[in-house]
Structure formats: C-alpha cells, structure tokens
C-alpha cells in the first residue's frame, strides 16, 4: 500500500512537472541544489572510472565516480552528479534546459554511500524510478587474500589482493604508499587505498584516474527517503531494472496512448548489472 501511494505521488509529480515545463519551457525557475547534512570534509579525493557491462543488453557504460576521504567519514558518489550539484549551487537560476544539458553531460547514477568509521556503519542512499531509498549496514569486513602481483596505476606501485564479496570474485590493486584503508564502493580494509578493482567476469572495472587534494565538505543527502534493508532494496531494484513495465504495472501505473490503449515498450530490461549479486 505504501509503495502504491509513493508511485501515485510520483506519477502525479511527473505529470505536474511535464505540464509546467511544457507551458513555460524558457522560463527561469529556481532549481534547488540537493542539501547535505555535512559530517566531514575531505582531505583527499580519488576519481574512478567505473565500467559496467550488461551482458544481456550488450551495452557498457563507464561513468566517473568519486571517493571523498575525510578523517572520520568517507563518501562514495557519482562524480558527474557532484559536478551538476556544484554548477547548480553556483547558478541556482539556471534554466531547466541548461540543467538538462548539464545532467545529460555529467549526470551519472544517483546512489551514494557514506561510511562512518567511529560507528562502523555504512549508509547507502539509492534510487528506484522516482523514489529514494536508504539502508544502513555495518561496514563489510571483507576477507582479503594478499597476492604477489603488482601493477603500476597512476604511476604508483600497487599490490594485488583478492576476495569474494557478495557473489563476485574480485581482484584489487591497493597502494601501500597511501596508507588509507579505503576503496571504491563498499570496498576497503586493505593496507592502502584501492586504486583498481576488477571482477572475474570482466563485468565491472573500477580504476582510479585521478587523486587530488581537495577540501570538499560532504555528508548525508537531505531528502525524503524510504527506509529499507539491503536485501529489500536490491530485490526491488532488480525487479524494476529487469522489467520496469511490470514493476510499474504491479502498482497500477500504466502508460496509455490517445485512444486509451496500454503501451508496452518492446524493450523491457533497463541497463543493470549490480556489484552485489547476493
């Protein structure tokens, strides 16, 4: 019932937004940048390119993602989304067309995760269709196996380690010269920052392209969330991505043409291949 209400509200919002922009496409409208509850300031930022391959659609995408490393917290988020938020905060009166252009150019996935070292927890913020979800879990204790291989990434000598994490076998290259036990996504716990990760199927490749010193305040996004658990969120996300039409129809949302006939898009599956399979 709760999901039903959320989807009805979402559909109404879309219709309203469409109406507003259809009527006044050029009108300047203040767009509010996403607010954050600041918990820490980064000292070091690592930019990664994350290549994901969807073998069903045979499509690969490679957005930029960023790891903000503070003293007590770290945050992992879309680098493109960070750029859009920065532009929006500098120019809140940008037109919707401008916003769309920036969003198309830079915008990536909207998920984010914040690790609290003191609490030992990780808060994940995700997005399904028009709704934000949030779940909290303990920072995963990954059973790493140190291996003998080395690779030079960004000119820095990295050592190899392997692990199995939630359904995938990973190979990581960490940099002992940067003694921060962090990495992309939920990964971490190695004796050095992780600069590259690759799963055994070649479906995910996360590689650092830039390390920079930057003081960027970061924290938890302030928006309305549906509280969830990791398992529930992953299931709902999988249902939606694998069959969005069915997922929407199950809560009573259907697309219709002028004659009132239900439109069922031929392409059912959306781009999706999660890091966590379990």
């Amino acid at each position: 019932m709760r999901r039903y209400r959320i989807f009805v509200v979402s559909v109404l919002m879309i219709i309203f937004a469409g109406f507003v922009f259809a009527q006044e496409p050029k009108k300047l409208k203040r767009l509010n940048p996403l607010r954050y509850e600041i918990v820490d300031t980064s000292r070091l930022v690592v930019i990664y390119v994350h290549r994901t391959y969807d073998p069903v659609l045979d499509v690969a995408k490679a957005p930029d993602e960023m790891l903000l490393l503070g003293d007590k917290f770290s945050m992992y988020r879309s680098y493109g989304r960070y750029k859009v938020d920065s532009l929006l905060s500098k120019n809140p009166y940008m037109t919707y067309d401008e916003y769309k252009r920036y969003d198309n150019e830079f915008g990536g996935f909207q998920d984010n995760l914040v690790k609290s070292y003191d609490a030992g927890t990780l808060r994940y913020g995700g997005w399904i269709f028009m709704n934000s979800y949030r779940y909290t879990e303990e920072i995963p204790k990954i059973q790493w196996k140190l291996a003998k291989g080395t690779e030079t990434i960004l000119g820095k000598k990295c050592r190899m380690a392997t692990c199995r994490f939630r359904g995938r076998d990973w190979t990581a290259w960490y940099c002992p010269d940067i003694p921060i036990s962090e990495g992309p996504w939920k990964f971490g716990g190695l004796p050095g920052v992780i600069l590259k990760m690759e799963d055994s199927k070649g479906e995910h490749l996360i590689e650092a392209t830039e390390i920079r010193q930057a003081s960027i305040p970061f924290g938890y996004p302030q928006k309305l969330y549906v509280k969830s658990t990791r398992e529930k969120f992953l299931k709902e996300l999988a249902d939606y991505k694998n069959d969005p039409v069915k997922s929407l129809e199950s809560v009573g949302t259907v697309a219709k043409d002028k004659e009132g006939n239900i439109i069922r898009p031929s392409r059912k599956k959306l781009f999706y291949n999660p890091i966590e399979l379990e």
Binding site: R51, D64, L154, G155, D177, T209, E210, I211, R212, Q213
Partner: peptide, 14 residues
C-alpha cells in the same frame, strides 16, 4: 598530500 596528487590520461567509454 600533494605528493599523492596525480592525474592519468582520462578515458571514458559509453
């Protein structure tokens, strides 16, 4: 921290 700063040839694939 500047000793850690480095930038690689930047490539994106879509």
């Amino acid at each position: 921290l500047t000793e850690f700063v480095v930038r690689a040839p930047h490539t994106r694939v879509k």
